[in-house]
Amino acid sequence: MKSKTVSSRIQDFGALIALVLLVAVIGIISPEFRTVGNFLSLLRQSSINGFIAFGMTCVILTGGIDLSVGSVLALTTAFCAAFIKGGMPVGLAFILAILIGIGFGCISGLLVTKGRLQPFIATLVTMTVFRGLTMIFMDGKPISNLGDSFALKFMGKGNLFGIPFPVILFILAFLIFIFLLEKTVFGRRVYAAGSNPVSAKLAGVNIDLTKLTVYAISGGMAALSGLILLSRLGSAQPTLGTSYEMDAIASVALGGTSMSGGRGRVWGTFVGVLIIAVLNNGLNILGVSSYYQDVVKGIVILIAVLSDRNR
């Protein structure tokens, strides 16, 4: 339609405009904020939420939600740390951790598809159980002294061509998700499942398989995010990733993805992730107390979602 051109284009870029404004305002106030070094570390921080948020975008596009990501992250990093401590090669431990994350995602997916549970409830269950299992597995104590393997350090702290490795992974994941959702049959099915599952099913789309896959992806991405954290911290913590689902969901919402599914874009989420990261980083640099930070974050999300409603 013609009207698409002007008004909705502005709304399409609403999150981007907000991001630019935030960067500009904080940048003007704080010289510390506007350095290359800070931007790179900001991007590195954002990658941890970013991986989770990309997976979350897929889940939300199907009309679901995944609350379990933080717990999946904790449990997979715990396993990974234990593997490494037990002498397994780091690369293999990483791959195994991601596969286990995918497996945990599948459990949530099966509860949603075969168990016919509402996604909120299904992943509330897995969130609780996985967190509990993490505590049991680690006996409530961190797993540290993982040796000084190069791969383990490089994952979270390394640089490639002067760019932090997590940032490269983050950009790579961004491109892969754009490709996946915009250019593949799978992507089309994800949107269809969220837009009108009845119609999609009658058009030959295997809705259950599509949903199962998005939860698996979400689990895998949570595990990947955990590996970055593991590398940066040098240890696995039982409370790692607590409430990470909130930042991820907020990023997706900021990016304009509809919470009821069927509408949304990965690049929106990308921008959403950056907004959250800029807020976290910028407010820290400005010396705003962490209590106030949450209030500011909440208000920014509120404004973004309200403007989304006017679409």
Partner: peptide, 25 residues
């Protein structure tokens, strides 16, 4: 129909196999 999707996406949803190669549209 998927009412919140375009004409194009509605037509292609039943024909994804036909318009893709190895899962890529």
């Amino acid at each position: 129909l998927m009412l919140d999707q375009s004409i194009a996406k509605n037509i292609s949803i039943a024909n994804l196999g036909k318009i893709s190669k190895h899962g890529v549209l």
